[in-house]
Structure formats: structure tokens, C-alpha cells
Nucleic acid binder design. Structure first.
Length: 480
DNA sequence: TGAAATGTTGGGGCG
DNA sequence: ACGCCCCAACATTTC
């Protein structure tokens, strides 16, 4: 006779891994029998913020997770529908008394989980981030809204050591009689990011465990989109194919064992990027309304232009600014974009085209394989100058100068905008400055094979400054 | 995790 | 020789 508490459900959401999984470990601690379950939620899969690329990555991740569960004597149970109903049914079938899941701090997940917890024994564990939002707070108990003090407090909290990491369980057997849906076929290709925990760990090793490149040159190279110098771990962190702790432990170890100051600084800079991720999780948890409106109240009344044709040109990479178009085409083709390029295209959409940052936020969510509500929202509000600790609103990237600075020979542009492949380096970021003869020689006529700039830089800059200035002015009058 | 506008300085051409 | 102007080059301020 098995006592009822001998079965627990490990509800997999965005923690598709067996190693260092606090939810799985808690489930195993609660019961000797653990049922790993994933619920295909139509509300999430059909959300206008979802992306087929991310769904494909998720489905392949589920396959890989299922395979490694089967290697341990178990398997992944897949159901679909409303998670509450599906889990209640699964509890009835298995006699499970507990559901354990990794806590997710996004507004959608918080609402879903608190509704579900009214009827079901849902137990949530940390794991999405190293320091959960409530753990890193200001002296007065409020959430940090400036990165630097947040990162200081974050680092002052106890950091994970290698011994804190939880090994994957050796065996995970489940009853053979349980029904499971087949894992759906990926709706599209997601080349460049093979899913799964093994791949994630391999990337982490390849990036952080070496003394030289890439992490040893990270401080310098990471700003150059043509180089392969970033970790490209974001999709894996997004779906928990590695834990935040595993990444942080690797960064700390790389810093400790560095034999050059470049390698140490590289590791520290990369750690900072991981802390940015946690900062934005904390911001979204403390201020859920940032998902709908600007954090800064004085910038909520910008009179956007919101031109649909210009938005489409931006989405499709036909703005006439090569660095912008290269980045947008990289996004459309691969579901990923280099971080420097994300800043450039975001600044361009918001400042040059004067289009609401939320349009860009949604487009990114619809495209990115690593699209995460907290990080994406944080990044967009940072770029728009409307967020916490954001770029000053008057900081307007000049796409020509950014291109010359971070893609000096135009390698990145040539890779993603092939019609500019033969343009000389001197003109690669401002091809409209070529004389007619040079355009003929380069095999591209500006206005035909490649568009003329959609908007004049000097004009756009003045218009953005006026729009932002106007919003601040009207808001200060409003308050009086 | 900018860029443009404005200010300052100093070398050199030139009458 | 000297003052004047031009204008890089750099620094500071402003958006």
C-alpha cells in the first residue's frame, strides 16, 4: 500500500533540465515517485507575443528532455489545455498529492499560478534566477530601480558555489500506463540553436572554461556583431536548459582562475550581463505595469508617429540604414540578434521613426528564440529612455557612426544585406553617399536594389528630441 | 552601453 | 617680425 504522498508532479514550464533543478529536487524530496509533466497551454502558444521560432525551440527541448528522462527509466507526460484542469486530471490519475514547479515572476505566470494554487497543492521553488526578486531589496524594503546599486547588493548576497549545484537524478521511473500526447512537430526551423541541456552545458564550457577567447576577449569583442564572441546562451537560459546558478558559477570560476586581466574582466563583464537579466526579472516582479506602460511617468505622453509602412520597413530590414537592416534581417532569418545590434535597431525604431517602443517589444517577442518578457521589456524601455536606469532620452544613436564603430569593415552588413556586398568599406554604412559611378561599380543603385534612407538622420534626431521634450513638458504642467 | 554643438587652444600660412 | 585668421584637435556643454 503506497501512501498518497508518495507521488509528486514536477510541472515543467521553463526549466527544461535535470541538473541543478530545484523544482525537480523538491519534488523528489517530497515523494519517491515523480511524474514530469508539461502542459501545452493554448493561451501561451497562441498568444500574440509568442513566436513560432521559440515554440520550435521549446518543442525540440521537450523531445530532448523526454529522451533523457527515458534514459533514466521515465518519460515526459505531455498534456494540453488549461493547466489547472490538466493537472487536476493528472493528479486524479496518479494519486499525486503535490505539484512542484519553478516560480515564474512574469505577470501572466503569477496570475496563472495564484489562480491555480487556490484549488491545487502547488508548491513553487526558486531557480529562474540566482537571487529571487524579494531577496535583493533596498534598505527601505523597496526594489532597486538603478542597476549599479542592485548589482552591488546582488553580489553581496551569498553567491552560489559549485557545491550548491544539484546533480541530475540517476533514475526517474514513472508508471507505464499514463497517457501522454505526442510532442508536436516544431512549426519552423530554428537553425543555430540545437535545443537541450547537453548542448547548453557544452556551450557554457566552450564559452567560459577557456582562458583565452571567447571570454578572454569578451570585453572588447562583444560589441562587434560580426564576431562570434558572445555566449549565445540566451535561448537556453530562457527555457532553463541551464540554470542561472550554473551560468553564474561558471562566470565566477572563470574570474577566479583567470590568468590574465583580460580574462578576469571578461568573466566579470559577462557576470554583469547575467545580473542585468536578474535586474529585469526583479523590475518586472516589483513593477508589473512596465509591461503595459513606461516606467517613467513623465514619458508616458510621447506623441508617437506610429507609421505602419515605416514599421514594416523596419521589421523587414529595408530602412536604408545598412547596420539596422542587417540586424533586422539577422533576426528574421535566425531568431536571434547580437546585443549591440538590438540597441541600435531599438534606438532607430523609437527615436528615428518615432514609433512606440511597445511595437518593437512585440515584434521582438514574435521573432526572438530567446524572447523573455522581463529582459525584452527591460531592454526596450532602456533603449526608449522610458525605463528604470534607462539611457537618457536624448541619447540618440547615429546608425552610421554606430556601424563604423562596431562593424568597421562592414562584414556584418555584407553578411545580412547581400545587395551591399560589393560596396567599398568607406561607404558601407552610408551607401547613399556613393556617386553614381561608384554605385554602378558596386552593382547596387540606391533607391532600386537597396532603399534610400527612410528618414534623414538630422531631421529624425530633432523630431525625437522635440517629441520627448514635449512629453516631459506637458507632464510637468499636468502634475502642477 | 552617444552625438552634436559649442568653446578653447595652438600651429602655421599669409600679408 | 608681427598680428591676424583659419582650422584641426581636443575639451566642455548641451540635448
Amino acid at each position: 500500500m503506497t501512501p498518497p504522498e508518495s507521488v509528486a508532479i514536477w510541472w515543467v514550464r521553463r526549466d527544461l533540465r535535470l541538473s541543478d533543478n530545484q523544482a525537480l529536487a523538491a519534488a523528489l524530496a517530497a515523494a519517491p515517485h515523480v511524474i514530469p509533466a508539461f502542459i501545452l497551454d493554448p493561451r501561451l502558444l497562441n498568444s500574440p507575443f509568442n513566436s513560432p521560432r521559440r515554440t520550435a525551440f521549446l518543442f525540440e527541448g521537450l523531445r530532448v528532455l523526454d529522451a533523457s528522462l527515458q534514459a533514466r527509466g521515465g518519460r515526459l507526460i505531455v498534456r494540453s489545455g488549461d493547466p489547472g484542469e490538466a493537472l487536476a486530471r493528472l493528479m486524479g490519475e496518479t494519486g499525486a498529492e503535490t505539484i512542484v514547479a519553478e516560480r515564474d515572476y512574469s505577470p501572466f505566470a503569477v496570475a496563472r499560478d495564484s489562480r491555480l494554487a487556490r484549488d491545487l497543492p502547488l508548491f513553487l521553488t526558486p531557480g529562474l534566477v540566482v537571487h529571487t526578486p524579494g531577496d535583493v531589496l533596498r534598505r527601505d524594503g523597496g526594489a532597486y530601480t538603478v542597476f549599479t546599486p542592485f548589482s552591488r547588493a546582488w553580489k553581496a548576497s551569498l553567491l552560489p558555489g559549485p557545491r550548491d549545484l544539484i546533480p541530475a537524478p540517476a533514475r526517474l521511473e514513472i508508471p507505464a500506463t499514463l497517457d501522454s500526447l505526442p510532442i508536436p512537430d516544431p512549426p519552423m526551423d530554428h537553425a543555430g540553436f540545437p535545443a537541450g541541456e547537453d548542448e547548453a552545458l557544452r556551450r557554457l564550457q566552450a564559452f567560459a572554461a577557456r582562458r583565452a577567447a571567447p571570454i578572454g576577449r569578451y570585453v572588447v569583442d562583444r560589441d562587434f556583431p560580426a564576431t562570434d564572441s558572445t555566449s549565445r546562451l540566451s535561448p537556453y537560459l530562457r527555457f532553463g536548459m541551464i540554470s542561472a546558478r550554473q551560468a553564474v558559477v561558471a562566470a565566477l570560476r572563470a574570474a577566479d582562475t583567470a590568468t590574465s586581466s583580460d580574462a578576469r574582466q571578461g568573466a566579470e563583464t559577462w557576470l554583469n550581463e547575467l545580473i542585468w537579466r536578474e535586474f529585469y526579472v526583479s523590475i518586472l516582479a516589483a513593477f508589473p505595469t512596465v509591461r503595459r506602460q513606461a516606467f517613467r511617468a513623465d514619458l508616458r505622453r510621447i506623441r508617437w508617429s506610429n507609421d505602419h509602412a515605416e514599421f514594416e520597413a523596419w521589421c523587414e530590414g529595408r530602412t536604408g540604414y545598412p547596420i539596422v537592416d542587417a540586424a533586422m534581417r539577422q533576426l528574421a532569418a535566425t531568431g536571434w540578434m547580437h546585443n549591440r545590434a538590438r540597441m541600435i535597431v531599438a534606438s532607430f525604431l523609437v527615436k528615428h521613426l518615432l514609433i512606440d517602443w511597445r511595437w518593437g517589444e512585440r515584434w521582438f517577442m514574435q521573432q526572438l528564440v530567446d524572447g523573455d518578457p522581463a529582459a525584452n521589456n527591460g531592454g526596450w524601455q532602456w533603449s526608449a529612455g522610458t525605463g528604470t536606469d534607462a539611457a537618457p532620452y536624448f541619447r540618440i544613436f547615429n546608425p552610421v557612426l554606430q556601424g563604423r564603430k562596431f562593424d568597421p569593415d562592414g562584414t556584418y552588413v555584407r553578411r545580412w544585406v547581400p545587395e551591399l556586398a560589393r560596396v567599398p568599406a568607406a561607404f558601407i554604412h552610408a551607401p547613399w553617399e556613393m556617386a553614381d559611378a561608384a554605385q554602378v561599380a558596386a552593382g547596387v543603385h540606391i533607391g532600386r536594389e537597396y532603399p534610400a534612407p527612410i528618414v534623414d538622420h538630422a531631421f529624425a534626431r530633432q523630431r525625437a528630441l522635440a517629441a520627448y521634450g514635449g512629453a516631459r513638458h506637458s507632464s510637468s504642467r499636468h502634475e502642477r
